[in-house]
Nucleic acid binder design. Structure first.
Lengths: 187, 187
DNA sequence: GTCTATATATTGATAGAC
DNA sequence: GTCTATCAATATATAGAC
């Protein structure tokens, strides 16, 4: 998991994985027929950890559902902080590295993005009348994911938190306008 | 260029590059000391082609500067269409695949992102009073880039144009609100 | 299930004739 | 500058004893 995150799938060899894990190839290939199967297992682990490790800790400090969306952004910002802008989202990395060269992998990545977007969608639903009635919440949830992923990309490329922070600022401005619009509506 | 775009940097070997280009290794290594040097040369080519191949054709059909921003999004949408959602932005791919494992590459990618963002920034400047006076145009230009990159990522992962189109729709809604706000201001 | 040893292909890169 | 031949290292994966 850590090696794929740090170096990408093609950037790490099985030998390095074995050394890091202090495992032998006989054991490894007993459990995983191929390197790709290990990646699939890693993705299953990400799916398993999404709520307990990402959403729940990120959502905990915020009561307001819209604030939770921004707490989530802050959670990913913290990944940048902790790695000095060297690492972002492992799922996004793999999505662009693997593309559809490995179709099994692409399908799992799509599911992970769906699960992530669904978490944001839940916040938007909980926000209820705070948002205008005609907002496409599925599109908006995907949009939050897209801004997060794009923001991490630019932050890593520029080796700076600034583009990520600026993007979150613009997203905040957009939400502020949506909320103001909804408040107007309800009058 | 094509191979790196389709398979990523680590996903292509020099042998495949030589075969595709019908070149021999002696010639290749005469011009490029290492494979990384070829990648650097490819990035220089992207820099060279950015205006003539991307911005100018994308901007041509639109007179209004804000419309040009969305023509640019349409240009990238067309990459998805032409490749059946298999390919997106080669620069974004490399940004997430390489990260800062190869620092020389990361610096060039940052420059390319800067140049792209500057193109959007120019549109925003030309839009003048159409946008609210207090808009941070640098942040907004980066935001457009971020939405574009994130949108391509999700479209490729889902193998569907829908997430990209939805993201452009949300971005459009945001611009509409900014434009409406500016129109209000000027009254 | 885990171990050591190794197979086989491919990796990026080089040598040296022409 | 380009060619063929090839190097040394690494890639993923396997064999077979324990």
């Amino acid at each position: 998991m850590e090696l794929f995150h740090a170096k990408g799938y093609n950037g790490v060899g099985v030998a390095e994985i074995l050394k890091t894990a202090d495992a032998r190839s006989g054991s490894f290939y007993h459990y995983f027929p191929t390197k790709e199967d290990l990646l699939i297992a890693v993705l299953a682990k990400y799916d398993e950890l999404l709520w307990p490790v990402v959403f729940e800790p990120a959502f905990a400090p915020a009561r307001d559902p819209i604030e939770r969306v921004f707490s989530l952004m802050a959670w990913y910002r913290n990944v940048l902080v902790k790695t000095d802008c060297r690492q972002g989202c492992p799922i996004g990395n793999l999505a662009l590295e693997i593309g559809d060269v490995q179709p099994r992998v692409r399908e799992r990545l799509a599911e992970l993005f769906d699960a992530w977007s669904a978490g944001v969608h839940q916040c938007l639903d909980e926000a209820g009348g705070q948002l205008p009635a005609d907002v496409d919440r599925t599109a908006l949830a995907d949009f939050v994911l897209i801004v997060m992923e794009g923001g991490l990309m630019l932050a890593r490329a520029q080796s700076s938190l600034a583009p990520f922070d600026a993007a979150v600022g613009v997203l905040r401005d957009y939400f502020d306008r949506l909320l103001a619009n909804a408040a107007e509506e309800s009058n």
